[in-house]
Amino acid sequence: MPSLSDMNTDEVTKLADIAAAEQTHDAHVTNVETRPAFFEWLCRMGDTTLILGQRLSEWCGHGPALEEDIALTNTALDLIGHTQLWLGLAGEVENEGRSADQLAFLRDAFKFRNVLLVEVPNGDMGVTTMRQFLFDAFHYELLQRLTESSSPRVAEIAAKALKEVSYHVERSTDLVVRLGDGTPESHDRMQQALDILWSYTGDMFVSDGVDATMADAGIAPSPDTLREAWLARVEDVLDEATLKVPDNAFVHTGGKTGKHTEHLGYILSDMQFLQRAYPGASW
């Protein structure tokens, strides 16, 4: 559980000031040349964890067993925590005074930069578990590389997130193997989930000009360089789970440049309702 600060005092503001003063110096944050690409890339990170966290939180109170309900919520909480860090840094880099909340709650769908996989609806626990595993395996590889980022701020966030994501991937791997090799019904549901999700996985590895700028600056690896390690792990796990990688080689792409599925609009209309209905209110 994240520790909660005492919000009945002005402690929060004080803590924020202290945190800001202690902030590691990072020349990338103020580099005007890489600014647009860095901002864009940070939105890709933060939007992806935000939308997945939002999806997972839909399960809260509806899980198949109390233990699973609690575990799913822990993962959702971790991802929302990552979002605060990534989008917070995005706002700093952009340097136009936008906070993490403003980025999360006041941009429309075409401005969102999350990968498509995370906006696919929860479906049953098969889809949710498989989606989590396919993403965790990618997330883990990515964060591991980011701990060596030339941007100390990025490396710091990645190191913190990696601790949590190491557990996410351990857990989702375990569930995929168990459900794939469980009953005939659980096997079929996991295979169906994989068939639905597979064509959305390619979007995570699409690499464009933004990624090239990030790679050149040593801030982040180009996503296409992560695919081999990802695929090796995924194939191993699916094999153990007695599941078959679909033949369908088609790849849906576009999430990272704002071309989304229809689902995102509904996610945002739900998530952003209050900020939109009561502009300027503080909560």
Partner: peptide, 29 residues
């Protein structure tokens, strides 16, 4: 309360509410 987790107005409020509703599952357990 779970009803409002997806609609919470800020990231912090969302995390707090989620943690609270999660506690309720724990207490049931």
């Amino acid at each position: 309360e779970g009803n409002w987790v997806t609609r919470a107005p800020t990231l912090e409020r969302k995390a707090i509410l989620l943690a609270k509703v999660q506690d309720e599952a724990g207490h049931g357990l």
